[in-house]
Simulated assay, not measured.
Amino acid sequence: MEILRTERLRLRQFTPADADFMLALVNDPDWHRNINDPGVRDREQALAWMETRLFEPYQRLGHGFWAVERLSDGQLIGMCGLFKRDSLPEVDVGYALAAPFRGQGYAREAAGACLAYGREQLGLRRILAIIAPDNTPSARVLESIGMVAQGVQQLDAQTGPSMLYAWEASTD
């Protein structure tokens, strides 16, 4: 199911047919370095991970991490969306792109669209984001879409410290 479109991207719900892509994405060395190692090593484990991390939140919350596809060719390039973590008081925006698609503005475009969706469709007044403290490219993406660094924090569910970012709706 399509969630939203931008100038170059389509965000849609993931399906089981995306399991091979997710298996590759969650095993990317940058995913392990900047997010975590979920221990997913085969297609069956990828489907199980997708069930709890992707499909279940769609049903329970009405949002989650969505598949990011290029409009020009339908190529699945990553994930982006709004996710409610137990370790954060508000919904956060998160994203991950496959290596060949980084550095082309796709993360900024998708994350910015997710902020707008959260504000306009979900009525959110505050959205958070967490990144590894040394993840400079993601810091630039978050700052470019209007998020403000809140400092380094140790969150319950994270193995190491995280840099917290926040976006708040204007009061006008």
Rank of each mutant, 00 (worst) to 15 (best):
I35H: 07
V141Y: 10
Q45K: 09
A24R: 15
L47N: 01
R12I: 07
A139G: 13
P57T: 11
L124M: 14
L122R: 13
G105E: 03
Q75N: 05
Q45N: 03
E7N: 11
G103H: 01
A96T: 12
W167D: 13
D18E: 08
A107Q: 05
D30F: 04
Q13M: 10
Q158P: 01
H63Y: 14
D172V: 04
P16K: 00
I131W: 02
Y117L: 10
A149R: 13
R108N: 02
E120N: 13
L71A: 13
D134Q: 14
L47I: 01
T15N: 00
R5W: 03
L76I: 04
Q154N: 10
D28R: 03
M22Y: 06
T136Q: 12
M1R: 13
N135P: 08
P100E: 13
G146S: 11
W31F: 15
V141M: 03
R43N: 01
P161H: 12
A166D: 01
R70Y: 09
I127F: 05
D156V: 03
L115K: 15
R53E: 12
S170G: 14
L9W: 03
E7S: 09
R60T: 14
S72P: 01
I35L: 13
R10H: 00
G94Q: 10
R33D: 10
Q158F: 10
V40K: 03
M147R: 08
P161S: 11
F21C: 02
M50W: 00
L164C: 02
R140A: 10
P38C: 05
P137S: 12
I130H: 11
N36L: 09
G160T: 12
Q153F: 02
L76F: 09
A107K: 06
P161T: 09
W66T: 03
R126P: 04
A98C: 08
A110W: 07
L4N: 04
G62L: 07
G39A: 04
R5S: 13
L164Q: 02
A169Q: 15
Q154W: 07
G94L: 08
M147F: 02
E69Q: 06
A166S: 12
N36T: 15
L88E: 04
V91E: 15
C114M: 15
V148Q: 14
V93E: 03
A139D: 11
G39I: 05
R33A: 14
G151W: 08
